[in-house]
Amino acid sequence: MSGDTVFIVDDDEAVRESLSAVLETQGLTVIGFASAEAFLLSYKPVPVGCAIIDLRMPGMDGLTLLEHLRSKGLMLPAVVVTGHGDVPLAVRAMKAGAIDFIEKPYTNATLLDAVRRGLDSARAGALGQLDQSDIKARLDTLTGRERDVLRQLIIGNPNKIIAFHLSISPRTVEIHRANVMKKMGAESLSHLVRMALGAGLAGDEKEGTNP
């Protein structure tokens, strides 16, 4: 990753400084911005780069920024940072083109892994390098009920809400969720959502009917 560029868009100065320190130890060039508006005023495309964007900021939020970039044809790979309660918003961001989201609090290893994927996407010249045929084959191993749970996870619903929608117990949701993660080979919720969206599986709030 040495020599590549990471843009940090976060209104919290302490967060920007902390992230910069971590990323610079990897030989990365880091440029921080206190707002989405400041980023848009100064951004110039780089050969290989990605952005870390906080979803909740004063003024233009992270989702609006991401949608604006896409509308202008600026295909900058972006990792969105979200609080636990912002998962539905993070899923919307991924539908808008974000390559990943990471939930607070996160570890340095999680952050670096997300950034590495972003830079790899930029280097490849296209977002989403997952093998779609392999993902669809994994989806085919899911039972109907596991698919129901997966669709609810794509929406961003927590286990209790999923249980309500599907008329099953939270414990049963946990079991199905664990089975989905295992069958899909997902390392995290964001990884699972990314694979499902990449394979064209949409979230569905309707109650599932398959056993």
Rank of each mutant, 00 (worst) to 15 (best):
L130C: 04
H176N: 07
G27Y: 09
L112Y: 10
P211V: 09
G203C: 03
Q26R: 09
G73M: 06
T172M: 13
T29C: 09
S18Y: 02
I162E: 05
E146P: 04
L55Q: 03
P211I: 10
L111S: 07
I99T: 10
P170A: 11
G208R: 00
A78K: 00
R151W: 01
K95L: 09
L63Q: 03
Q26N: 11
A34Y: 04
V22G: 02
I168T: 08
E146Y: 11
L19S: 05
V91G: 06
T82V: 12
L89E: 08
S35V: 14
D131Q: 06
M57D: 03
L65G: 04
L19A: 04
T172D: 14
D4E: 15
R56F: 06
M181W: 09
S35G: 11
G73C: 13
D61C: 07
A109K: 06
G62L: 03
R177S: 12
R92F: 02
Q152K: 14
E17N: 13
V115C: 03
G208T: 09
D113M: 08
D131N: 11
A78Y: 00
P211T: 09
S2W: 06
P58T: 12
N157Q: 14
L192F: 12
G144P: 06
E37M: 09
K206G: 09
T25M: 08
R116F: 03
Y43K: 10
I102K: 01
S188C: 13
S167R: 15
L201D: 01
A98M: 00
N108Y: 04
S167E: 13
D11V: 03
E24M: 14
R70Y: 13
L65V: 05
G62Q: 01
V22T: 08
R194F: 00
I31H: 06
L66P: 06
V22H: 03
L201M: 02
F33C: 04
R92M: 11
S42Y: 08
L28T: 04
R117F: 09
H176P: 02
M75Y: 02
R123Y: 07
K72S: 13
D204H: 08
G118D: 02
L153D: 00
F33N: 04
M1N: 01
G59H: 13
K160L: 15
A98G: 04
T29K: 15
L201N: 03
G144R: 12
R147S: 00
Q129P: 04
M94I: 10
D204L: 01
P211G: 01
Q132R: 15
Q129A: 14
I53V: 15
